[in-house]
């Protein structure tokens, strides 16, 4: 069915989360990719009027797709700011025509620190907060804003090359899962732990970024990539697509009933055929 309509589908699509909004599950088809996503601040976030500490963005341009998901650290200063700042900068960086390397990515993140630090210093702490809260916020600010992240770029073989590539980088426990022809593929090396993150004051915490690269040929294979934050941790044990859909539907029902999630949650799925 999909091939029949391929010519009428757009070749590009771009979406970025606004951290105060709920985005019910959406599906976007482009000529080369299928993209599904949902995003929701937790009920605690919505009730308090604060911004979600998650950030999610995806862009498809013909044969290329880039994406980033960030999970700000609530015990750091302004996890919402950290996620947005880091996510938007990484998203922009991935959109530049450049060869993606671990060294280049590390250099980029390292050079972001002074800008992040200055931006955090400029964030206003409301004048009406209790003294104790002000002291705590100042202490957090001195330690820095921190976020975990997972990002990547997919280049399909058709993009004027004989080979396509998948490039991924991350620090922290954002979930990353990949299937080829409906078989789940183990990501190696696969360290996804909360103690690893990026700090707008200190740079890398817990080690340097993990990078995963995979080349793929034109092979008529069906690929699926799924990334999400721990707000969707119930998906961790789900292997079958049907089980994943059941949980997503449960979330949709909750959202429709204005009953939101216990934690900020973001989810993105990308599918393509080589």
């Amino acid at each position: 069915m999909r091939n029949k309509f391929t010519r009428t589908l757009p070749s590009s699509f771009e979406w970025t989360s606004h951290q105060n909004e709920v985005y019910p599950l959406a599906e976007k088809l482009t000529s080369r990719f299928t993209c599904r996503y949902t995003y929701s601040p937790s009920d605690e976030t919505l009730e308090s009027g604060e911004a979600s500490q998650d950030y999610l963005a995806v862009a498809i341009e013909g044969y290329s797709c880039r994406f980033v998901i960030c999970d700000g650290v609530s015990l750091s200063y302004r996890g919402d700011f950290a996620a947005r700042f880091l996510g938007s900068r990484i998203f922009g960086w991935l959109g530049q025509p450049r060869e993606l390397t671990k060294e280049g990515f590390e250099q980029f993140l390292y050079e972001l620190v002074p800008e992040a630090s200055e931006a955090a210093d400029k964030l206003e702490i409301p004048s009406d907060v209790p003294l104790l809260l002000r002291e705590v916020l100042e202490e957090k600010r001195s330690r820095g804003a921190e976020s975990m992240y997972l990002c990547g770029r997919i280049e399909l073989p058709e993009a004027g090359r004989s080979r396509g590539s998948l490039w991924l980088a991350w620090q922290g426990d954002c979930r990353l899962r990949r299937w080829v022809d409906n078989r789940e593929v183990t990501i190696e090396p696969g360290s996804f732990v909360t103690k690893e993150r990026w700090s707008g004051r200190q740079g890398f915490i817990g080690g340097s970024p993990h990078v995963y690269t995979k080349e793929f040929l034109k092979a008529d294979e069906n690929h699926r990539l799924m990334i999400y934050t721990d707000g969707f941790k119930r998906l961790d044990g789900c292997i079958e697509p049907s089980a994943i859909n059941v949980i997503l539907n449960q979330v949709l029902i909750k959202q429709a009933g204005k009953a939101h999630l216990e934690d900020d949650a973001s989810w993105l799925e990308l599918a393509w055929t080589t």
Binding site: S48, R78, D80, I125, P126, L132, L133
Partner: peptide
Amino acid sequence: AVRQMVFRSTKGNRLT
């Protein structure tokens, strides 16, 4: 300990 609880209860600029 109370300060620690405040530390662990802030989200953005708010105390939840």
